[in-house]
Design a binder for these strands. Sequence first.
RNA 1: GAGGGCGUAGCUCAGUAGGUUAGAGCGACAGUUUGUGGCACUGUAGGCCGUGGGUUCGAGACCCAUCGUUCUCCCCA
Length: 455
Amino acid sequence: MSKPSLPQGTRDFNAATVQKRQYIFQTIRSVFETFGFQPLETPAMENLDTLMGKYGEEGDKLIFKILNNGLDNPTKTEQVQAGFEKITQGKSSTAITERALRYDLTIPFARFVAMNHGALTFPYKRYQIQPVWRADRPQKGRYREFYQCDADIVGSESLLNEVDLIAIYVTAFEKLQLPVEIKINNRKILLGLAQVCGGEDKMIDLTIAIDKLDKIGWEKVKEELNNKGFSEQQQDIVAQYLNISGTNIEKINQLKTLLGDNENGQKGIEELNFVLDYHEATGMAKHLVADFTLARGLNYYTGLIFEVKALDAQMGSIGGGGRYNDLTSLFGVPNIPGVGISFGVDRIYDVLEEKQLFPATIESTTQVLFFNLGEAESKAAYLQMTALRNKKIACEIYPEKSKFDKQFKYAEKKNIQNIVIIGSEELAQQQCTVKNLNTGNQSTIAFEALANFFS
RNA sequence: GAGGGCGUAGCUCAGUAGGUUAGAGCGACAGUUUGUGGCACUGUAGGCCGUGGGUUCGAGACCCAUCGUUCUCCCCA
């Protein structure tokens, strides 16, 4: 028997961790519901072809695939061997695997909307809090099983939705008392830039290079642009683009002059302005930072895009999202525009832990421990305990008749504040000894008064 | 996919230039008048030194491989 272990990148959560995680989930869930979103849950596994090709080439490699059952069936041996051949060549084969673990919540959601668009009321606003799995190399802030909390609105093109989603971010992180900045950009601006220098088809090369700016610096970005065939003049425009700085308004003005009369660029700026203007009024604009270098990897985004970064923390983004014009058309149902955001709970947890921002009150435990001093005694104790439980006072009885020492230590380890002693003496008098372990104070209480003593 | 660090008791780690029976702290368990804890003291248990090869008279230490873990890059939450 080998030592038990956990698959790479997965974790057990002990009591304290679960309670802290619940605190995050509940905070975010209550904000979602306050904004009129309704819950949805989808299966842990999807058909492989629902997921493949939706996350780019890199993404496909990171999907956990589930081995088919019945591969040992002799009548299928030939198919299975042919399928295995394809797998070893890096292709996929339904003879070997046709299901996979959920990679994110957005694509399953799009699949759900496509399947149920006849029954849903649009605009449809749903939130979803479930684990996802990625066959990534685990490292700091990156796990193979982690939770996402998504909120999406489909069936509406209104920018009010973007305004709302930003308000959700601001509200949720204020409740969690975590200072953040929300970076905001527009894919249309990136598209406009691509059109101004090099053409639309170079947009992906361009955004990848731009996205790397703060990691590798301008010189390397310029080198990469050069390799991708951008002219000196075009590189110069990109340089000006990346040098844009100042307040949000100043940045936008600089961008306007740079992109000139490019239609996509102007539209992108207009949308950005709309959202910023709304949140000037709500006072939430102080968290918003226009950042034209923000690109985001997922290529289904078409409009405004967001990314949340915790201030003063060594951690990647803790949330992100954006507008996608036609996700459900991937599943044969066109013309349902949508916009959504995601919270990275596991990273939020790590940041809150690092900055010690969890409230002390969230670790709840048993309030009262009844000592076990024998059969008749524990029977009397059990009756009292039932009365307390009816009053919603969390209590338990030590299940073994053990030495005081041991029962005390159990209470301490579980951080139980009060103990109740019912021994032969107390039993005869129909009363019990109550001791507060914090203060050391001890008092004698009649059985019938016990429930009121704690409530 | 590429590249580093680390695997010794349940946990955190010592273990000197390879040299006898492998160490500490914490934890666990037991005891210090079998109805009053936290402290202290005493004692006990617990290690194929990740695994497999190799070098050597001799390996926990050195070399190779392998597995696990962790971090960085890529990519992402």
